[in-house]
């Protein structure tokens, strides 16, 4: 398996009961690359993203993160919990519904995993956390509790929290779908800044103009199959399938 990819997905399949949500999906993400996954709801795009850090377990196929296989060990057996946690720690995930830990203030949300998973010292983790809060424009909210923040602020904290793991890849699962329209922009701006800084990202989104602006590669899923994979200009201007043309018509 190529070691120079950030994420390498090989012939992934997954069913829920008897519905096939992913069918032989393969995808490679190079370091520094931004890949957006588009598709109608139920097309399998969130499932694909959640397989990357093993929140969903695929039935067949393999996933490597920075050359390391997730979920299955070298002997081909299911990974033990500790080993799985170690690989997962190399991915950063941002959820649609933020999923901050409400009993911890913003700073502690961000330092929690670096200190208690990676074993960083508190001081080091807090210094890094403050830099990240600065990056997402929330340096004044370090002591605030999540319950007092707006949706856009919560999502920016969630992004900082994921970045604090210094992950090989950032995974975004519809990061703006739960936000009021006027709060979408502030989150998308942060993600765009990250792409400019060279972060590797896989993003599931419904924001078409954002996908066009931020992506190096656009992947379109339909009924669990990748039916288009192209540079954004090609994908949006000259899609090769009727399915994508129809989809884009409905989203403009």
């Amino acid at each position: 398996m190529p070691d120079d990819t950030a994420v390498s997905i090989h012939q992934l399949s997954k069913s829920f009961d008897d519905v096939e949500v992913l069918r032989d999906v393969s995808l490679e993400v190079a370091p520094g690359e931004v890949v957006t996954i588009l598709g109608a709801s139920g097309s399998g795009k969130s499932t694909l993203l959640r397989c990357i850090n093993w929140l969903e377990q695929p039935d067949r196929g393999s996933i490597h993160i920075a050359g390391q296989r997730i979920g299955v060990d070298d002997a081909g057996k299911r990974m033990n919990a500790r080993a799985l946690a170690r690989v997962r720690a190399q991915t950063g995930m941002v959820f649609q519904s933020f999923n901050l830990w409400p009993h911890l203030n913003v700073l502690h949300n961000i330092t929690e995993a670096p200190v208690h998973v990676m074993g960083k010292s508190k001081g080091e983790a807090q210094t890094h956390a403050r830099e990240l809060l600065d990056k997402v424009g929330l340096s004044d909210k370090a002591q605030a509790y999540p319950g007092t923040l707006s949706g856009g602020q919560k999502q920016r904290v969630a992004i900082a929290r994921a970045l604090a793991m210094q992950p090989e890849v950032m995974l975004f699962d519809e990061p703006t779908s739960a936000l009021d329209p006027e709060l979408v922009g502030e989150v998308l701006t942060v993600i765009k800044d990250l792409s400019a800084e060279g972060y590797t990202m896989v993003i599931v989104t419904h924001e078409m103009s954002f996908a066009r602006a931020v992506s190096d590669q656009v992947v379109f899923l339909d009924k669990g199959l990748i039916i288009e994979k192209a540079a954004p200009a090609t994908f949006f201007d000259t899609p090769s399938t009727q399915r994508v043309r129809d989809f884009l018509k409905n989203h403009h």
Binding site: L55, G92, M93, H116
Partner: peptide, 22 residues
């Protein structure tokens, strides 16, 4: 909320640490 558990898993928490801390 299951989402908080998933966030902890995604951040590399093992079960015991997640239970005690979160």
């Amino acid at each position: 909320p299951q989402g908080q558990i998933e966030a902890a898993q995604a951040h590399g928490f093992t079960r015991a640490r997640m239970f005690v801390r979160l």
